[in-house]
Amino acid sequence: MKGDQKRRSRPNVRSELLFLLAINGVLIGNVKPAVIFALVLFSGLLLCLFCRISTAAKYVLTYCLMFSAEHLLMLLPGISLFHFIIVISSVLRKFIPCFMVGCLILETTTPGNFLASMQRLHMPKVFSLPFAVVLRFFPTVKEDWHSIRSAMKLRGIGLSFGNVIAHPLRTVEYIIVPLLSSSIKIGDELSAAAIARGLGMERDRTSVYDVRFCIWDHLLMLAAAVFFVLITFV
C-alpha cells in the first residue's frame, strides 16, 4: 500500500533500541575521547539521514564546543571554579550520543509502529502500551511547553536568567503545574478515545506498518556491535 516504500527506508525501533543499549557503556566506563567522538559523528550521520540536518549539527557542535572549552580551561591556572565546570561538562558531554539516538528513535517511530514492533518481540502489552503512549505524548508536551512559556512571559514570570537564578524552585513550579494539569486532561481524553476504538482488546493487533528488518537495521546492528567492542574493550 501507499507509503510502504517510505517506511521501509528507515531503521526499526528494535535495532535502534539495541544500538542505544550497546552504547550505554559510554556513560559509566572510562572511554577514549576518540571513540566518543566517532560515536557522536556516527549518530550525527544517522540524524542527518533520518531527521533534520540542523538537529544533527546542533548536537555535534555542542559536543565540540564543550570538549574544546574543557581543554582550554585545563590550560588556565587551576582555580577551583574551573575544575568544577570541567567536571560537570565532562559528565554532561557523555550524555550527548545517547540523546542523539533518543532523538532518532522519537523521530523515526510512531506509536503504531512501536506497538507492532514490540508485538514482534512478544513483549506483553502491559509493557509496550505505556511506552507507546509516551511516544504520543512527547509532541503534545512540546506544544504545551510553547504555550506555557508564552503564558509565563505575559505574567512577567518568564524564564529569564534573573528569574531562574532568583527563584529556581518557583520557576519550576510554574512550568510543572500547568503542564501536569493539561497532561492529566489530555491523558484522560486520550485513553477514553483509545478504549472506545478497541485498544484494550485481548487478541493480537495486526498492523499496516511493515516492521521487518531492512538494510538500515542490519547496518545499525553491525555498528552496535562495533561500538560495544570499542567502548568496552578499547
Binding site: 510512531t110 506509536p111 507492532a116 504520543r136 478515545a193 478497541g198 485498544l199 482488546m201 493487533r205 506498518y209
Partner: peptide, 20 residues
C-alpha cells in the same frame, strides 16, 4: 486528544488494527 498514532495513515488504520 482523540488520535493515538502521530501519522495520519497509521491513525486511520488504528481501529482496524485493534480488530485484528
Amino acid at each position: 486528544t482523540q488520535f493515538f498514532d502521530t501519522d495520519s495513515t497509521g491513525e486511520m488504520a488504528f481501529g482496524c488494527e485493534n480488530m485484528g
